[in-house]
Design a protein around this nucleic acid. Structure first.
Lengths: 326, 326
DNA sequence: CTGAAAGCGCTTACAG
DNA sequence: CTGAAAGCGCTTACAG
């Protein structure tokens, strides 16, 4: 039996007698043969490799996404190669090393991939999918939930429960998630007839940044009674600063809402009210987008918007309506 | 200029005129040329790929290790490919897919890689390094800190501060870290003349398992005043169950010590006293071991033991000596 | 020191 | 439907 025939047995669309294929596959299974992917990709120019770019994983949202997404991509026959670094410069270098392996596409979980790194990926034929954010220049593919709507939901929830002085804890100003959540929250607050929320600049999506932001509440012109934080980990740091640093009670003095619904948000020590991201749907969308892109099919829609997710009520928001609570 | 010459320019040990090499490398840099790693590995049988196996990342210790280790390996010119899954069966499959890429070696961060998966890796020529644990059968390479000594340190600390009724919260019974920490803790407690600590079986290294273990304290024959948990995330769950579920005060009623010193342990909401792992050293040892193994040099020592790490005092242990504390 | 040639393990027109 | 042949982009003896 020739190499050609064996090769054809592994390609569902190849022209080969059904019986021949059966024999080949059976025997391959016996001796543990699999086509060498390096030789394959030398010919086909397809590698079945997806490059995954990660950086700041202090936000527990990402490790979870990274491993689940990896598992899903593997089930779809793709392998993920990782590029990781703590500074944008090193990350760039790591991406370049990764690109020598000619990934079919890249998935970016990092908030700090530079735009020219994206261009470099596309230059070597690897389209880039940004997960849970859009690229700074609006190019590349994006999978994201409806963050504007999520921000609006948070505003409605707080206002419905009688909050009148809102604030938003802002994270990395270049992150679309941050910008969109802020916009939804502020717009809705105005629509409901209240003043624009005060903005507290935390600068990053991290516990530490949230903690600092919490401490800065005491120097705010007006004392907020309801706060939306750009994400959960920020919210947790923020709340702890309020409690430990300023001696305030949450939700007694201030209500706080997070965003993401990471596992930790449900722990007894936090019980954070938060907007859950529709993670499963976002990952499923990413995987199917990845398959299309890897097959070099045309994908018309560059930005995939998944529904807004739901508000999960826990214990960091208090009902401040007259005649209710205390 | 021939392909042979160009090729030689990229191999430091190849015989080539210095001037020729300079010219080639310069031009390569100009046009962004890099040797195609697939074609290279087809010849050399080396891929510069290290396979990383992860599974349960609810323990924040691992995402941190994964990204830092990835960054370090990339700086050493290796690329990491990820295998991830939530069940041992799927993980096995993921490992097999990964193996088709013929990684030079594997690094295992997962606690649940089956032994025959390790054998399969070695069968295709990829040695396996277990990070922060040893394999179930004691084979493969291992990088681990001195967990026995760490357990002893915890016992000494608690006993020095007047604790008399110790307990150990045990995680996955098949994990060497768990077994060793338990042994050090129990042995030292006996040596100091106290009864063997009571063992609380949590079964896993997770917040939830810790929480369950905490609730089970009320049905223990003797009420413990000092507890070592197999790791931090377990300790955090354990403490929260004590506080929320049983209404106990930590450290007022019970002192708790963790293991790892993850970032969260230092947060104001936890302030967990814990044994820090010498993470930098463990990762550095892993990378240099990886380089040796990738170069197919002989590595005589299969288990690398890094120092025990230090006890970090925070606020979950109370001084119970007479005339002290309250 | 450099170049021509063989060969790594595949896929894919092309002939039969 | 199957096989022989070319070729993917490299490395490495071998000759010069």
């Amino acid at each position: 039996m020739s190499v050609s025939t064996v090769s054809r047995a592994f390609y569902p669309s190849a022209i080969i007698a059904a019986e021949t294929r059966r024999i080949v596959l059976e025997r391959a299974n016996e001796i543990g043969y699999r086509p060498n992917p390096f030789a394959q990709s030398l010919i086909t120019k397809k590698t079945q490799i997806v490059g995954m770019v990660v950086s700041d994983l202090t936000n527990p949202f990402y490790p979870d996404v990274m491993t689940k997404l990896t598992a899903l991509l593997q089930q779809a026959g793709m392998n993920v190669m990782l590029a990781s670094a703590d500074t944008p410069e090193k990350l760039d270098e790591a991406v370049e090393l990764l690109l020598t392996y000619q990934p079919d596409l890249m998935v970016v979980l990092a908030t700090n991939l530079q735009s020219h790194a994206r261009e470099k990926c596309e230059a070597v034929g690897a389209p880039v999918i940004f997960f849970n954010r859009l690229s700074a220049d609006g190019l590349g593919y994006g999978v994201s939930c409806d963050n504007v709507e999520g921000g609006r939901q948070a505003a409605d929830h707080l206002i419905d429960l009688g909050h009148r002085e809102l604030a938003y804890v802002s994270a990395f100003p270049g992150a679309s998630t941050n910008v969109e959540r802020q916009r939804g929250f502020c717009d809705r607050t105005l629509e409901r007839g209240l003043d624009t929320p005060q903005i507290i600049e935390a600068g990053l999506f991290s516990y530490e940044a949230g903690y600092e932001a919490g401490l800065s509440v005491k120097s705010l012109p007006r004392h907020p009674d309801g706060v939306l934080c750009a994400n959960d980990i920020l919210a947790i740091g923020f709340i702890e600063a309020l409690q430990e640093g300023l001696g305030l009670d949450v939700p007694g003095d201030v209500s706080v809402v997070g965003y993401d619904n990471i596992a930790m948000a449900g722990w007894p020590s936090h019980r954070l009210t938060t907007i859950a991201q529709p993670l499963e749907q976002m990952m499923a969308a990413t995987v199917s987008l990845a398959r299309e892109l890897a097959a070099e099919r045309q994908v018309p829609q560059r930005i995939l918007r998944i529904g807004p997710g739901e508000l999960v009520e826990r214990r960091t928001v208090r009902d401040r309506r007259k005649g209710k609570g205390a």
